[in-house]
Amino acid sequence: MKIIECPRDAMQGMKAFVPTEQKIAYINQLLKVGFDTIDFGSFVSPKAIPQMSDTAEVLANLELEETTSKLLAIIANVRGAEEAAQHQQIAYLGFPLSVSETFQQRNTNKSIAEAMQQLVQIQDICHKHGKTLVTYISMGFGNPYNDPWDAETVIRFVEDLQQLQVKIISLSDTIGVSDPASITYLFQHLIPAFQDIEFGAHLHTNPNTWQEKVEAAYTAGCRRFDGALRGYGGCPMAKDELVGNMPTENLIAYFENIGLNLNLNKAAFASAMAQSGAVFS
C-alpha cells in the first residue's frame, strides 16, 4: 500500500503565503512519518500559483538523509520539467492531463492535444534524468463544464499514455463527483488490462463520502492513494467547484481498520497533524 501525502495540493490554493521556513519545517516533519511519497511542491509559473514560488528553496532545506519517502514535484510544461529534473532529490515529476478540454486550458493554459505533445517531451526529459513521470488524469470522473466524459474516454487516455511508456497514472476526482460505481468500474477495467501501469486514486471528497470512495477503489485493486492531512486544499483552478482533498488520517484509519500494516511512525504523524493546524490556520 502506497500513501502519497500532498502538502503541495493542500497549500497551493491558500491566499495567504505560507512562510518558506514554515513550509520547510512542516514537510520535514512529514518526511519522518514514512509515507511512500511526498508531493512537496511545483515548478510552475509563480503568477499562476504564487504559493509555490519558493519550491526550489524549500527543496534545498529538506532533511532527506534518514527518510524513506520519495519526493514528487508537479510541473505543467516542458520548462517546468527541465527545471525540476535538475534536482537530484526529486524522484517523480507529476503532470496534470485532463479529459476535460475546458479544465486543461484552465489548469495548464493549453489544449489536450498540446498537453499530449508536451508529455512526449516531458517523458524524454524524465528518461534522460532518471525521473519517473506520474500522469494525473484530472476530471477523471466527470466535469462541471459539460465537456464530454465517459469511462471509455478515460480508458482511451490510458491507452495513449501507455504508448508513451507512462508507468504511473493517478485517476483524479478533481471536483469530488465520483461515486463507488464509477470508481469501481474504472479501476476494475484498468488494473487488469494495463498490468505494466501502477494506478493511483487522487480522490477529492466531502466528509460524508470519503469512506465509500476509498473502499470502492481498494476493493477494485487500487493500492496507491493520495491524501492531505485534515483534507486541506484542492485544486484552485477548479474555482467554484473546489472540493477538499482526501484526509490522510481517514485513509490511515480505514486501512488499519481492515488490518493493513502501513509501517508509519505514529508519533511523527501526530506531530505533523498538530503542526498542520498552524500551517493552515
Rank of each mutant, 00 (worst) to 15 (best):
K239M: 04
E198D: 03
F199M: 05
D226L: 04
M237Y: 15
L171H: 09
C235R: 06
G176L: 15
R223T: 07
T209G: 09
E198Q: 09
N206L: 13
K213A: 02
I183E: 01
P207T: 03
N206P: 00
Y232N: 11
A216H: 05
M237V: 12
K213R: 14
C235N: 09
A193Q: 15
A193V: 07
A238N: 05
M237R: 08
D240Y: 10
A220W: 05
A228M: 10
L186V: 11
D179I: 06
P207N: 02
L203P: 00
F199P: 02
A238K: 06
L171P: 05
D179K: 10
P207E: 05
F194E: 10
L229E: 00
Q188D: 12
L242W: 03
L186T: 12
R223D: 02
L171Y: 09
F225P: 03
C222V: 13
L190E: 12
C222A: 14
A181S: 05
V177P: 01
D196E: 15
L242I: 13
A228Y: 06
I197L: 02
E198M: 04
G176V: 14
T209K: 12
T174A: 15
I175N: 14
K213I: 04
C222E: 12
E212Y: 00
C235H: 08
V177Y: 08
L190H: 07
I191F: 01
A201L: 14
V214A: 06
Y232K: 10
I197K: 01
K213F: 05
A201K: 07
S178G: 14
F187T: 03
Y232G: 03
E215K: 02
L229P: 00
T219D: 14
S178M: 12
L186D: 11
V214K: 05
L242R: 01
A217K: 07
G233P: 01
